[in-house]
Design a protein around this nucleic acid. Structure first.
Lengths: 236, 236
DNA sequence: TACAAAAAGAGAGCACTGCTCTTGCTTTGG
DNA sequence: CCAAAGCAAGAGCAGTGCTCTCTTTTTGTA
């Protein structure tokens, strides 16, 4: 995760530290998958690893620091799933790539519900994500921007309307996120990005219970509509 | 909250029980607003109320039961805010009512972030919402259905396209939720419902930090687009 | 190579949590 | 009137995050 400044760890101790750190995170991830973030216990992790709880604080100075490490890993794991779907659809139409990436995000979420809740559910109280999580957290968003850019550079796309009151904000966002795209598109894109997580969250957290049954099909259709809204669909 | 079967409590003891129960919930809500659900402590609540912790278990058999009561209250509080906005816009165009209700939901969420997180964030681990929460949880959804119905009965509305693979599910949802509306509309409506919470959740949980600044304007536009997608906007 | 410094583990302990059980006291209803 | 039910209080259990001290082990360097 951290950049490998010197790929040769200075000694046996440094190597051991890396291994123990990884072991702690692995065991913590295991407990996370079973019981969720709120029940993750440092003492239980240490117990399972055969070490005493106070020794664990040599590796993570607090429970929140462990959680932060897990959050960054989760963002990266999710990002890799999404990027894999993106790669696999190279050459396909932008709308299809969009749907594929969205489905990869959904699939990862369904497969790792507690990790998903950790990063996109309510943040752990009193905990605000440190700056270190930003790059990992951006990966999916960048992917969606990339797909849109590809479509735009390919043949342009239908711009949604933009009310005058939103234009300043739209131009600010555009300058920050994708200066080569029209503000109308960037605005819709950001909304679609948030809406994607609404769809996934409702499914994952049980709001669709007794409402939506064929959730995969429903999701595919909904994110297809999102792609349409962004302007990725030309034909028909 | 609970239906007043006999509005005259049988005696002084019953009255006291109601009052103590309310006091516990109030204090718990106070702590919830400050520290969030995970740090809500029965002992702290009891302490603040001048009672010993074990006495609290006469009123709520467990921490989860207290949380469930708070969840139902939160759903109802949110529902009332939304319904107030709905009433206040009686006679207005459906799209305007839609936006007003969505803004009421957002306003309530921003004003009660921890309560919002309690009901729409990641569910408390190992905790699945009991059936008792269903009616309270449905109020906002019913409102959105009502607005759409009003628009439909008024002058009909533009139906979005519906792919064949989704038609069975769309018809099932329609039969369950609003048999008098076209399946195309119901499907889009359910998606919009989830997407609304995506928009609010991203704002509330910090995902829009350094991305969207003028969030009120952005939100108004985004939910206006949702209304458009459902078919509530006729003109222009 | 000897040695001080840094890193790591072990254990005890503090203040807190949810929850249970027992012991008394008070209100209630037959 | 009096047993029964409801309620409060206190002690106690097992667990938590975290800190502090003490000892051992591994370092980089004089």
């Amino acid at each position: 995760m951290s950049p490998a400044d010197d790929s040769t760890p200075r000694g046996a101790r440094a190597r051991a530290r890396i291994e123990v750190t990884a072991a702690i995170k692995d065991e913590a991830r295991r407990q996370l998958a079973v019981d969720g973030a709120a029940k993750l216990s440092l003492r239980a992790v240490a117990r399972e690893l055969g070490m005493v709880s106070s020794a664990l604080y040599r590796y993570f100075p607090s429970r929140d620091d462990l959680l932060t490490a897990l959050i960054i890993d989760a963002y990266n794991s999710l990002g890799e799933s999404a990027e894999a779907a993106h790669r696999k659809t190279a050459g396909a139409a932008p709308a299809q790539r969009w749907v594929a990436v969205c489905e990869a995000v959904r699939g990862w979420a369904l497969g790792n519900p507690h990790e998903y809740a950790l990063i996109y559910g309510s943040p752990v109280p009193g905990y605000s994500a440190p700056e270190a999580t930003v790059p990992a957290a951006s990966r999916v968003g960048l992917l969606l921007i990339g797909i849109t850019r590809e479509a735009y550079q390919g043949r342009g796309l239908a711009k949604p309307r933009l009310p005058a009151e939103l234009r300043p904000e739209a131009e600010r966002m555009t300058a920050d996120l994708a200066p080569d795209l029209p503000p109308e598109t960037v605005t819709t894109l950001v909304a679609a990005w948030a809406q994607l997580y609404g769809l996934i969250g409702f499914e994952l957290f049980g709001q669709f219970k007794r409402v939506v049954e064929d959730r995969a099909t429903f999701f595919r259709h909904a994110v297809g509509q999102l792609a349409h809204g962004v302007g990725l669909v030309h034909g028909e």
